[in-house]
Simulated assay, not measured.
Amino acid sequence: MPVFMLDVLPSDSSAAVAGTVHRVETGTVTLDVRDLGPSRGDGVFETIGVVDGHPQALDAHLKRLANSAHLLDLPEPHEAQWRHAITVAAASLSTQRQGGLKIVLTRGVEGTGTPTGWIVASEAAGDFAEREAGIRVITLDRGYTSDVAARAPWLLAGAKTLSYAVNMAALREARRRGADDVVFVSSDGYVMEAPTSTVILRFGDCIVTPRTDIGILPGTSQLSVFAFAEARGLRTEEALVPVGDLTRADAAWLVSSVRLAAPITHVDGADVPVDLELTRAMNAALLAREN
């Protein structure tokens, strides 16, 4: 699992980015325990899929990284430096298997004012059987209403932060209930997102995803799915999605950067139709995307 540390540059720096990214040898100390990322979750991250050595949806991921940094009042990422670092990290992976990159930017060691940045590159552990077999999900209350982003911006809804303890607890709860994953719903009854995925539904010839202004992340793979759908002549829409629509839909998926599109087969034990042909076409398009 190659690790790369960055000498984080200010966004307006004109310094050459070559030489600011360093591969860390196994067993070498990489992180100060006083760093506010691991000690307080005070940082942001992205997970980028890598196929044939190519980091996918890079523009969308960098845009979301910058937005998350803005929401946390972190320094704006130096785009050219992160592009270079991501390219270097992706090149460290075998082209024989799908891989992923976790890119992280934290506030750094408390009191220094210097952010910390790193990338972990890894090969996929499995063969993503769920793309064909599908997944069983449960719905869990996220604990706030759909107006949280406007009403309480300090909760950082819509930022991809390192504070993922709640998301991981939700996945453990799903497994305790015999399911594979979770769909969070707002306390006023609307579909939000999964702990690590975006929700997508099909109603006839329309592909729908929840609106991001309800306090959820904009999905990078969701953007690619919408482009794919529109190319097939399907309509696309961002909407408020009542939780009951999960079982009324003609098909439903959880979509993420590495797993890609996994069809939902059950919601809280109720059957959901699976569109296997569209799922296969969707995943083929996601695997083939250049950006």
Rank of each mutant, 00 (worst) to 15 (best):
I103K: 04
L217G: 02
G143T: 12
G215M: 11
V199F: 13
A125E: 08
L246H: 09
D12P: 06
G117D: 11
H70D: 15
Q98G: 15
A18L: 09
V44R: 06
F184I: 02
T30F: 09
Y164N: 04
P55F: 06
Y144N: 01
A124T: 11
I214C: 09
A261W: 01
A165L: 15
A239N: 09
P77W: 06
E79F: 01
T112C: 06
T161D: 02
T87W: 00
L286G: 04
A18G: 02
T20S: 07
I264V: 15
D73T: 11
A18N: 08
D52K: 13
V51A: 10
F45V: 06
L9W: 04
L286A: 05
G27S: 10
T47R: 11
E76M: 09
G41K: 08
R64F: 13
A80S: 14
T198S: 15
R248S: 14
F128E: 07
T106K: 15
G111W: 12
A262D: 04
T265N: 01
Y164S: 12
T209F: 07
H70L: 13
A18F: 06
Y144A: 00
T265C: 09
E132V: 12
T87D: 14
A124K: 06
A252M: 02
V104Y: 05
V191P: 00
R280F: 03
E132K: 07
R131G: 04
Q222R: 15
P10K: 03
R289F: 02
A18C: 01
A60C: 02
A133N: 08
M168N: 14
H84W: 12
T196Q: 12
P153I: 01
S68W: 09
A157I: 07
V148S: 02
M1Q: 08
E173Y: 00
G37H: 08
E76F: 02
G126I: 00
T112A: 05
V225A: 03
H70A: 14
L260K: 10
I48C: 03
V183G: 07
D35W: 03
P195A: 10
L72C: 12
A165D: 12
L36F: 05
R64G: 13
L278V: 05
G178H: 13
T112H: 11
E76W: 01
A262H: 06
A91T: 02
A270K: 14
V88N: 03
E132L: 08
A149Y: 11
L58G: 08
A57M: 11
V199D: 02
P2W: 01
R136S: 15
Q96Y: 07
T106Q: 11
A91D: 15
H78T: 06
Q98E: 15
S13G: 11
T26D: 12
A231H: 14
L286W: 03
P77L: 05
A159I: 05
S92P: 09
D188V: 11
T220P: 04
L74E: 03
I216G: 08
